[in-house]
Every structure is written in structure tokens, then in C-alpha cells.
């Protein structure tokens, strides 16, 4: 089906969100809580766009609005710009030491004001870390409390049995808010310290013991499988294939 975005006719798939459609058509809409792997959450509201339907205008979140009929979308009006600027300002005031927000604050030409800043905060509660942890299957962290007290934590802020120290949460975090410290063969994250395993082949410290066991269990591997880092694993597979091909000939 066809819809109109910023005056241009765009092909859209029924049921796709406005954001997905725009990304395919190379139309830029800013987001902070969106990741292709998880779909739209509607948390950060940075992707607000103006929608016109049967002569009525309204503002909607592009990441959750499904296209099911002929609509016209505008992705950048003065009101949208102002709304995005205020959202950035609010997030900057929450996490003023986040480099990403400092950059956005400048890009969106936000005005400073008298609101207080929290120098210790970096998290913007986009929930991507929780989604990543769920996706992996650990479910070690979650959103706790509510309202202005809401935050991401492991239960009781203690070392969680479920956490394997894989670090996916820290990797996906857009504001580097999750502290993952590595010293020697130890990795600390979410109040828990892990022992890092060395690759049997190249000796690089590449994963935690818990993570290796977790993946091995998930993949039905047996304990005799070798502990290899990613690049060595690829090499090992390539060698196996070569050897197989050689035997064939």
C-alpha cells in the first residue's frame, strides 16, 4: 500500500510501523529506545511524528504506530522539533554526563535552564538492556519501582544467580550507563564478579565461565567442547571443512 511521508509517496507494508517504513525509505527519524531486534517500545517518544487522517491531525509515536490505512505523515514540523528538543533537554538534565546526550543537546540547540542536573546518572531508562537480557534468556535484570523512582536493577540489587556476565546489556546501552569492569581475569557487572575464560587456542580472555556454560547448555553442547573465542571458533570450523574437503578428494 502507499502512504505519503513528507509529501512523497512511499510504499508501505500493511501492519509495519511508520518508523520501519521510514527506515526502509531512508527517511530519518531519531530514536533512543528502538532496536530492530526488539521492535518499537514507545518509551523515549523522540520519534513523535504528525499524522493526518481524514483531515484530522495528531501526534503519534512512529515506532509503535502500525500502518493499516491511507495516512499522511510529516516527520519534521516546528511542533515536532520543539517536542524533540524538550525531550532531549529532559533527558540531558537527567543524565548530563552522558556523552550522547551532550551531543544531542548541542545538535538540537537546546537552551539551558534552571532545572537541576544529576551528575551521577547516566541511564535514560530506554530498557534496551532489559530486552537484551531477556532475549539472551538470562532475565537477570528488570525495571524496578515506578514513576520517578524507576530504574534498572538486579533483584535486591544483589549479585543475581541468573546473570552470566555476558555483558550484552552494557554493549547495547546507548549512554554507557552500565558499568562493566575487567581487571586481570575478572569481570564485574551488576554487583557480581566473574572469572574470565581464556581461549584454548589464542589465549585471549573472551567470556565468563557462566556465560560459556549457559551457551553450551542452550546449544546442547557437551562439556568436552573446546572453549574457543569467536575468531578461533571460526578458524576451527574452517579447518574442519578444509580437512573434510581434503578427505573427499
Amino acid at each position: 500500500m502507499q502512504i505519503i511521508i513528507d509529501g512523497k509517496k512511499i510504499d508501505a507494508v500493511y501492519g509495519d510501523t511508520i518508523l520501519e517504513t521510514c527506515r526502509k525509505a531512508d527517511i530519518y527519524i531519531p530514536t533512543l529506545c528502538y532496536h530492530e531486534a526488539f521492535g518499537g517500545q514507545g518509551r523515549c517518544r523522540l520519534c513523535m511524528v504528525e499524522l493526518e487522517k481524514e483531515g484530522q491531525k495528531k501526534m503519534v509515536a512512529a515506532c509503535t504506530y502500525p500502518i493499516t490505512e491511507k495516512i499522511e505523515v510529516r516527520t519534521s514540523t516546528p511542533l515536532i522539533k520543539k517536542t524533540r528538543r524538550n525531550i532531549i533537554m529532559l533527558l540531558y538534565k537527567r543524565a548530563p554526563n552522558s556523552l550522547l546526550l551532550q551531543k544531542l543537546f548541542r545538535e538540537y540547540e537546546c537552551q539551558d535552564n534552571s532545572l537541576k542536573e544529576d551528575p551521577a546518572e547516566r541511564c535514560i531508562l530506554c530498557n534496551l538492556c532489559v530486552q537484551a537480557c531477556q532475549e539472551i534468556g538470562s532475565n537477570a535484570i528488570s525495571l524496578i519501582m515506578r514513576g520517578t523512582d524507576k530504574r534498572v536493577a538486579s533483584p535486591y540489587d544483589e549479585a543475581s544467580e541468573a546473570c552470566t556476565g555476558c555483558g550484552a546489556c552494557a554493549l547495547i546501552c546507548p549512554t554507557a550507563a552500565i558499568e562493566m569492569v575487567e581487571e586481570g581475569n575478572k569481570r564485574s557487572i551488576w554487583n557480581k564478579t566473574f572469572e574470565l575464560l581464556a581461549c584454548e587456542r589464542c589465549g585471549k580472555l573472551y567470556t565468563t565461565k557462566e556465560q560459556w556454560e549457559f551457551t553450551a547448555k542452550k546449544n546442547n553442547a557437551c562439556a568436552s567442547d573446546r572453549q574457543l573465542c569467536e575468531s578461533c571458533r571460526k578458524k576451527a570450523v574452517a579447518e574442519k571443512i578444509k580437512a573434510y574437503q581434503a578427505a573427499e578428494h
Binding site: N139, A140, S142, I144, P155, A162
Partner: peptide
């Protein structure tokens, strides 16, 4: 009590972090 929440997680098969999230929400 924590013991109770852990038992709920066990009985329902829902992750303990999610049970904790509910209890604090």
C-alpha cells in the same frame, strides 16, 4: 519475604527479576 517471592518464581516459571519488578511496581 524473599523466600516467598522465590517460591512464586519457581511455581510460575517466571524469572525472579520479573517477580521482583512486580513486587516493587
Amino acid at each position: 519475604p524473599r523466600e516467598g517471592l522465590e517460591l512464586i518464581a519457581e511455581h510460575t516459571g517466571v524469572a525472579f527479576s520479573e517477580i521482583y519488578s512486580l513486587a516493587t511496581f
